[in-house]
Simulated scan of single mutants.
Amino acid sequence: MRRRKPPQDDLHNKERWLISYADFITLLFAFFVVMYSVSSVNEGKYKVLSETFSGVFNAPQRSLQPVTVGDPLLSAPEQSREEVIPPAVTEAPGNPDVSEQNRAEALRAMADQLAMEFDDLINQGVVSLERNDEWIELNLPNSMLFSSGDAEPHYDSFKVIEKIANVLRDRDNAIKVEGFTDNQPIRTNRFPSNWELSTARAAAVARMLMMEGVEPERLAAVGYGQYQPLARNDTEEGRRRNRRVVLLISRDASIRGAVR
């Protein structure tokens, strides 16, 4: 006796589990993709954030002195006789007793220290260091500190800034941080032009130096955008040389007077 074929509806019902199984696998894959993206942390941003919170929570507690209820108010003549105390002004830790010759010698010593710290990179032509009796100029490529088109320092940049801060810390020399870009246009919500990008990068390096213990009164940050090139912008090598951050370390202590 010939067996009867099962109805097509029965076959369809038996295979419906495949649809549910495929949906489950797709959702599981999407879940792991989301979990991976959430777990990918920008370590550079994390360190900046952690340093900021540490500074806030470790700061000394400040409170206003309460006014005792019932204390008589001072009369106008008495108020006028009170000594007016001017607000405290934070100044750079300058030492006016140091002679120009001693300052020039100290500047040469700092230049020698920086040359030792970046000896390999200087020999490879990645970093350049120039010096005279008034200035040290340390030229760092943007790729050593930042990703393309961004002003957030990547993780390796903290080691570079730490080396520089170890040389500059506990001194009084003024430090000017300059940012430069190539002529490739950038138009984003954060950086409408290369001026904003170069300034943000210079400010980021100045902030990192401050986080490493360099006094902020000694620091200044300025961005030049694409308008102070070292090389021609019509070649890739020229554009690479133009994308840079320059640290100018002055022999003098006054950041406002250190004009170059």
Results as ranks from 00 to 15, higher is better:
Met1Asp: 10
Met1Val: 14
Lys5Trp: 04
Lys5Pro: 12
Lys5Thr: 09
Asp9Gly: 14
Asp10Asn: 05
His12Lys: 14
Asn13Cys: 04
Glu15Asp: 09
Arg16Ala: 14
Trp17Ser: 02
Ile19Glu: 13
Ala22Met: 09
Ala22Glu: 11
Thr26Trp: 03
Thr26His: 04
Leu27Val: 04
Phe29Ser: 14
Ala30Cys: 09
Val34Met: 11
Tyr36Gln: 06
Ser37Tyr: 10
Ser37Ala: 15
Lys45Asn: 10
Val48Ala: 06
Ser50Trp: 11
Ser50Met: 15
Glu51Gly: 07
Glu51Val: 05
Thr52Met: 09
Ser54Met: 09
Ser63Met: 01
Gln65Lys: 08
Pro66Trp: 00
Val67Gly: 01
Val69Trp: 06
Val69Gly: 00
Gly70Lys: 06
Asp71His: 06
Asp71Trp: 06
Leu73Cys: 05
Ser75Gly: 15
Ser75Leu: 13
Ser75Thr: 14
Pro77Trp: 07
Glu83Cys: 08
Ala88Glu: 08
Thr90Tyr: 08
Ala92Asp: 03
Asn95Ala: 01
Pro96His: 06
Glu100Tyr: 04
Leu107His: 10
Ala111Arg: 04
Leu114Arg: 00
Ala115Pro: 03
Ile122Val: 11
Val126Ala: 11
Met144Thr: 11
Leu145Gln: 06
Ser148Tyr: 13
Ser148Leu: 15
Glu152Lys: 14
His154Gly: 13
Lys159Thr: 13
Lys159Arg: 13
Ile161Arg: 00
Ala165Ile: 05
Arg169Met: 07
Asp170Gly: 01
Asn173Val: 01
Asn173Gly: 02
Ala174Arg: 03
Glu178Pro: 13
Thr181Pro: 02
Asn183Cys: 08
Asn183Pro: 02
Asn183Lys: 02
Thr188Gln: 08
Phe191Ile: 03
Pro192Met: 08
Trp195Gln: 14
Ala200Val: 12
Ala200Tyr: 02
Arg201Ser: 04
Arg201Pro: 09
Val205Asn: 02
Ala206Val: 07
Met208Pro: 08
Val214Pro: 09
Val214Cys: 05
Glu215Asp: 15
Tyr224Phe: 15
Gln226Trp: 04
Pro229Ala: 10
Leu230Thr: 15
Arg239Tyr: 01
Arg241Thr: 13
Val245Asp: 11
Val246Gln: 00
Arg251Lys: 15
Ala258Ile: 01
Arg260Pro: 14
